[in-house]
């Protein structure tokens, strides 16, 4: 039997229009129902600094990016049973994780429309017994992925190791998985991805000054009508009844 998961708001990367992609990080996910009570979510955190193109003869871009992020998974009235554990992400880190899907699952954005329409706009189906390979790749400086299990929730933090003078922006995909069970009828929860900062980097991926400079540069762009979004990306999910 096919399962269905509603996502609200529909802020997954696959549903975002091009003009709405003004974040330095995005979230995408794939879902699987391991049994009647357990849902597995494979999260794809995309770190993509925004280039600011300047110069005509010799183009030299600035980048707006983040040096760290915090990802929170919260299962409402549920408990986390398994998840990606923290690890140091070495220079040119690559990690592969394979998962064979147990159930056929649809994820769909929650859209406020009349029931009569029976809309299936944006629905994505993940078929049963399909094996998926998730490969996280990070180049540049070494990073640390830390985790903390709160029982009903799990938090990951990705950041540069302490004491590192040279800061680099996050660029790449981080795949995390989390499995959680619910005794309650309603299986629902929340995922939040928050950049730890929003800095400007030069073309050599070196951060330009401190936060004050980043703020001044953001102000300069804001005056031109360019608004950079430093806010958290939050989505709520719930199983369709």
């Amino acid at each position: 039997m096919e399962k269905k998961l509603f996502i609200d708001p529909p802020s997954l990367l696959r549903w975002l229009p091009k003009e709405g992609r003004d974040n330095v990080l995005f979230l995408d996910l794939e879902a699987d129902f391991l049994d009647d009570r357990t849902i597995r979510l494979d999260l794809n955190i995309v770190f993509r600094p925004i280039p600011i193109r300047r110069g005509k003869l010799q183009t030299k871009d600035y980048y707006v990016g983040s040096t760290g992020a915090r990802i929170t998974f919260d299962a409402f009235l549920g408990r986390v049973t398994n998840y990606t554990c923290g690890a140091p992400l070495k220079v040119d880190y690559e990690h592969t994780n394979t998962h064979s899907r147990k159930a056929s699952v649809k994820i769909a954005p929650t859209i406020e429309v009349s029931d009569k329409l029976g809309t299936n706009i944006g629905e994505v189906t993940f078929d049963k017994n399909v094996e998926r390979v998730f490969t996280s790749r990070f180049s540049g400086a070494e990073k640390i992925l830390s985790d903390v299990n709160l029982g009903h929730a799990v938090e990951w933090e990705i950041k540069l190791p302490d004491g590192q003078a040279i800061r680099d922006y996050l660029f790449g995909n981080l795949y995390l998985f989390v499995e959680s069970s619910w005794d309650a009828v309603a299986k629902k929860g929340r995922i939040e991805v928050r950049p730890s900062d929003l800095l400007f980097f030069d073309s050599d991926r070196r951060a330009i000054g401190d936060r004050r400079k980043a703020l001044a540069m953001r102000f300069a762009l804001w005056r031109q009508g360019i608004r950079l979004n430093p806010e958290s990306l939050i989505i709520n999910f719930r199983e369709a009844e």
């Binding site: 030069d202 400079k213 540069m217």
Partner: peptide, 15 residues
Amino acid sequence: IDVDEDTSALLSAIA
């Protein structure tokens, strides 16, 4: 993001 020359110069000055 594409910025005009003035904004580019302003960003450079801040940097």
